[in-house]
Amino acid sequence: MSTGNPDRRLARTFVALADTLVADFDVLDFLALLTERSVELLAVDAAGVILSDQRGGWRPAAGSSERADLLELFIAQTHQGPCFDCVATGKAVTSADLSLATELARWPRFAPAALDAGFRAASAVPMRLREQTIGALTLLNHEPVSLDADTIAVGQALADVATIGMLHHRAADRGELLAEQLQATLHQRIVVEQAKGVLAEHDGLDMHDAFTRLREYAHRQQRRLSDVARELAEGTLDPADLGTPLR
C-alpha cells in the first residue's frame, strides 16, 4: 500500500476489510490483509491472528510474515502471553517491555520466546462477535514501546471490522454457523502450510517467500488462495506453474 495521508490509508483499509460480499472472497487472504495493514497503520513490526478451534483451544490463522520463528511465536501464544490473556478476558492486553522481570514472571514461556525472536513489546486486541471472543489480533514491536490509547483503539476497530466482515460473508453466502466457519478457516490454514512446504522444497525458498509466491499466483489467476493451496498439496498443480514472485 502506498504511503500518504494516514487518514486516507486508514479509510482505504476499512473499505478493503468491509468489502467482503464478493464472489471471490478468500478468508485466508482477508486475514493476511488484516495483519499486513495492521503493521502499516499501527507502526508495529509484526502482527498475527489466532482463532478459536471451537474445542477450547486456539490456533494461528495468519501473520504479517511467514517467518518460521514468528509462526512458532504465534503458536506459543495460543497457550500463554498477551494474546492468550486477551481471548480469556475479551479485553486488550499490552506489554511495553517483555524483558522486565515482571513480564518474564507473568509469561515465563512466551516472554523469552518473543525476546529470542527479536520482539521486546507485545499487545493483543480481541476479535469479538457480540459478547463472544472468537480470536485475537497480536501486535509486536522490536523495541520496548507502549502503544497509546488511540493506536489500541484503531487496532480494535480493525479487528472488529474484520470479524464482522469475515463472519457476515460466510453467514450471508453459505449459511454457515460460527463453529463451522472457524473450523473451515483453520483447516484451510493447514492446507496452506502443506502447500508452502511443497513450494519451499521444490524451489529452495523460505516459508515467507513460498507464501508470497502462492498468494501472488492466486491473485493473478483470480482464484482462492485455499483452492490453489489444496491443488498444490494434492499434486494436481505443478509448483513450476506458479512462476516467480512479483515482489
Rank of each mutant, 00 (worst) to 15 (best):
A96F: 11
L225E: 01
G4L: 13
L115I: 01
V125T: 03
E176I: 09
A92M: 09
D238C: 04
V192M: 03
D69M: 07
G204K: 01
A121E: 02
Q132I: 15
G175A: 10
G56A: 12
R109A: 08
L158K: 06
E66H: 14
S65I: 12
L21M: 03
A240V: 14
R247W: 05
A92D: 07
F25E: 00
L137V: 14
G81Q: 10
M207C: 11
Q188N: 15
D227N: 02
R55A: 09
L147E: 02
D173S: 10
S2R: 12
R213K: 04
S99C: 05
A157E: 13
M1A: 13
L177E: 13
V198L: 07
A111F: 00
P239I: 08
Q188E: 15
I50A: 11
D209V: 08
A200H: 05
K91A: 14
T185M: 10
Q132D: 10
P108E: 04
E176Y: 02
G63N: 12
M166D: 00
D29C: 11
L34K: 14
R215S: 15
G81N: 06
E36W: 05
V93N: 01
P126H: 05
A62F: 11
L158N: 03
P60M: 10
S226A: 09
V198G: 02
L246N: 07
Q181R: 10
G135A: 05
G135E: 01
